[in-house]
């Protein structure tokens, strides 16, 4: 499902050159739930950004869903992200000026041929899946951290993506809420067959996934 070949990411300024990723080769199968672990600054987030097509690698190639996406234009990348990928972030990244349901609908706004009524219907379904049907008209700042992350998950799954990329999704939550969110992702992986790549610092959470990839100093160590 995701193939990273000889991926290299170097950040350059006028005076400094920092290698964030060095010769990374990863193959993630369809329906797999993989976690990526490593100390801060080891390149986990850089890797997730590259997998999410948010940042281009300095070298190497990426194949996703059997398509070589390395040479895609910005417009095509945007369309690919919209159709195939879902994102969950540690700090939720909800738009505070939009209600819960409007936040959830967001990815479908950029998909052609979906009416307003259809968007609303699917947003309600997605919110139902994460147990937030009663909060549709609330604003993010009226919700708890766990509820916000569930809204973010609903937003990530509304477009039925094949791949879910989660950047420390439980990092800002207490253990009970973290478990709740983790169970939700496990459920999605199991029932919908969604491929999930999760960056985490939490070993207990990582153990619940099918495979753990360890990173250190920009390189895959296991």
């Amino acid at each position: 499902m995701i193939q990273l070949l000889n991926i290299e990411k170097i950040y350059r300024t006028d005076t400094i050159e920092t290698t964030a990723l060095n010769n990374v080769n990863i193959n993630i199968n369809k329906g797999e739930f993989v976690s990526i672990m490593g100390p801060s600054g080891c390149g986990k987030s850089s890797l997730l950004n590259i997998m999410g097509l948010l940042d281009a690698p300095t070298g190497g190639s990426i194949t996703m869903d059997n398509q070589s996406v390395t040479s895609f234009s910005r417009k095509r990348l945007a369309a690919f992200r919209n159709l195939k990928l879902g994102f969950i972030f540690q700090s939720y990244h909800l738009i505070n000026d939009l209600s819960v349901i409007d936040n959830v609908e967001l990815p479908l706004l950029y998909r052609n041929g979906i009416s307003g009524a259809e968007r609303r219907k699917r947003a309600l379904e997605a919110l139902g899946k994460v147990g937030l049907s009663a909060r549709t008209k609330h604003y993010p700042n009226q919700l708890s951290g766990g509820q916000r992350q569930r809204v973010a998950i609903a937003r990530a799954i509304i477009g039925n993506p094949e791949i879910l990329l989660a950047d420390e999704p439980t990092g800002n939550l207490d253990s009970a809420m973290g478990d709740e969110v983790m169970n939700l992702m496990l459920h999605l992986n199991k029932t919908d067959g969604t491929t999930i790549v999760m960056v985490t610092h939490d070993e207990q959470m990582a153990k619940k996934t099918q495979r753990v990839i360890h990173f250190f100093d920009g390189q895959q160590v296991s």
Binding site: L54, R74, A78, L83, L106, L109, Y110
Partner: peptide, 16 residues
């Protein structure tokens, strides 16, 4: 800016 970034991540093209 964060909202713009989020919208792009969600699939908005520069034109959108």
């Amino acid at each position: 800016k964060a909202e713009v970034g989020l919208r792009v991540i969600m699939g908005a093209s520069p034109f959108d």
